[in-house]
């Protein structure tokens, strides 16, 4: 199945990437090339194989609910592109 430029635009929106027309064109080509490569996996019958998400068995990790060291609010916002009163400033989200 071939990806069209419209597919690329849809995926870019899901990924929150604003792409230029040039980028859309080159990505359409490259993604199709790479997807074709992925097709090779269909040669393998994996119907009886369980998936591996991590190479070591992972378990839930529990700990006691005790307070530890944490960052100050001013440290937390220190890298923010815009902040005010120890809060992140963003464009308006809710309509007034």
């Amino acid at each position: 199945m071939k990806l069209s430029k419209q597919d690329i635009e849809h995926v870019a929106l899901l990924a929150r990437l604003e792409l230029s027309e040039d980028e859309k064109d080159s990505l359409t080509g490259r993604l199709n090339q790479i997807m074709e490569h992925f097709g090779k996996l269909q040669e393998l019958d994996t119907s009886q194989v369980a998936p591996t998400s991590h190479s070591i068995p992972l378990q839930n990790v529990f700990r006691h609910d005790t307070a530890g060291r944490s960052m100050t609010p001013s440290d937390v916002v220190a890298n923010a592109p815009e902040s005010r009163d120890d809060q992140f400033v963003v464009p308006q989200v809710v309509e007034t």
């Binding site: 995926v11 870019a12 990924a15 604003e18 993604l31 464009p91 308006q92």
Partner: peptide, 26 residues
């Protein structure tokens, strides 16, 4: 806010990173 996300990520990431994000998202 939407255009902030979209333009920030377009300007901040290079070509290879964008390509991998696109493959993964797809």
């Amino acid at each position: 806010v939407m255009s902030m996300f979209m333009k920030t990520r377009d300007e901040g990431f290079g070509a290879e990173v964008k390509q991998r994000i696109m493959i993964g998202t797809y």
